[in-house]
Design a protein around this nucleic acid. Structure first.
Lengths: 233, 233
DNA sequence: ACCTGAACACCGTTCAAGT
DNA sequence: ACCTGAACACCGTTCAAGT
């Protein structure tokens, strides 16, 4: 709901058309993907079924198979749509390191708004959305002056970190939306850890868990990698 | 099959008991988890259904629900079993940096042998297997002398990199087992990239794709991280 | 050509009935 | 107490029949 206005703030794009506009015109791949995103945002990954999607589109069950091969391809297109807005919107900062930070944060915020993207990106490395991320990171590393062979390692490290961190975030604290619920989630997790293991390192980590900031920690990880990349020459 | 002998080499543990041993004695949670691992290793994540599992155990459909809450909990226990062997077996090297490398490689090799673990770890950050990884990394970072607040960021970065990289690897090249198939997979992916995008950076990356070594690249990522951590003090 | 919706071949989970 | 297996409420996908 207030998600809609976030599109504009986050990535400088207009929001998708309202869900009950133009419901009588012809079906197309684009309309189907758009509807899938609406259902995913409203009800989560488990809420997207062929039945819920075709109900939302007011059409028959088999109709979508004239435009998409299967549900897997539909999810890949939906994720590519979201990621494409980020990579297109993240304009090149003069400083390539800063461009990488902005790109990473753009992906983080997009997955915060569309958690189903986080799990989808881990499903198939060859999908278009993942390719977009590889390409964006790769071009910034080139601008940063990282030479060819080292660039593949650096790009791999950064992309895999971003995908891993956002997948964990999407599957975890992000799932609970309201702030009180989030605090309860973290308090509960901290209590379970602390009870499960008396090791002082666990007790210490658990005590800091409820107050930590996921987004800041994600960015700190990006900076650790940037330091590692530039320190190696 | 030859996977069995890898258990011993990889993590110094004895392999699970053969699948048709002791089929007549009582069901238990341990036996069910063991059977689930056998089915997952033999037929992949999609091959584990309540029906295939109970057939493998020669029991009724509902019997397992007396010992496990649901399939999600069963997968979490199976993954914890595999990860537990790695974290228990990865003895502390004198050098904490080297301990971290060995731990990361142990997880990589375990997921190479059991790809379903890679996707399972991304599903729920609070599951026991993920906790084990956090704890092992955290204690090595402590030995490395990384102070409290920085340690949370460093641990988060490393754990999320490991989870992200192994999840991508498990979902991608690892899926194709034989070497010729693997080469065909990478050739095909490189061709699709090259055809899809004329950008020189993509052409260059695609040309290097077929010859790259996933395990070496994974380790290079760990080293980038370690450099980033130590360079920051 | 595009769409419909019943039919098909599956799922995970429950629960009355057995031992 | 533990186990059985039919029943339940779902899935994604196909395909003959319609327009």
């Amino acid at each position: 709901m207030d998600q809609r206005s976030n599109y504009v703030k986050m990535i400088g794009m207009t929001p998708p058309t309202p869900r009950n506009a133009r419901r009588s015109d012809a079906l197309s791949r684009g309309r189907i993907v758009e509807a899938a995103i609406e259902v995913l945002d409203a009800t989560g990954e488990a809420g997207l079924t062929v039945r819920s999607l075709t109900a939302h589109l007011s059409t028959g069950r088999g109709a979508i198979y004239h435009h998409v091969a299967n549900k897997e391809g539909l999810l890949a297109s939906a994720a590519d749509d979201i990621v494409g807005r980020v990579t297109a919107g993240a304009g090149d900062d003069e400083d390539p390191e800063q461009s990488i930070r902005l790109l990473a944060l753009g992906i983080f915020d997009a997955i915060d708004a569309h958690p189903w993207v986080g799990t989808q990106l881990s499903r198939e490395p060859g999908q278009p959305a993942v390719f977009r991320i590889w390409k964006s990171i790769g071009s910034q590393l080139q601008r940063l002056g990282v030479p060819g062979p080292a660039r593949a390692d650096a790009g791999s490290a950064l992309v895999n970190y971003i995908l891993g961190a956002t997948a964990q975030y999407a599957a975890g604290p992000r799932r609970v939306t309201s702030d009180p619920d989030r605090k309860a989630y973290l308090d509960d997790l901290a209590a379970r850890w602390a009870q499960h293991d008396p090791d002082p390192i666990v007790q210490d980590a658990a005590s800091h868990l409820p107050e930590h900031d996921d987004r800041a920690q994600f960015l700190a990880g990006v900076d650790i990698f940037l330091t590692g990349i530039t320190a190696r020459g």
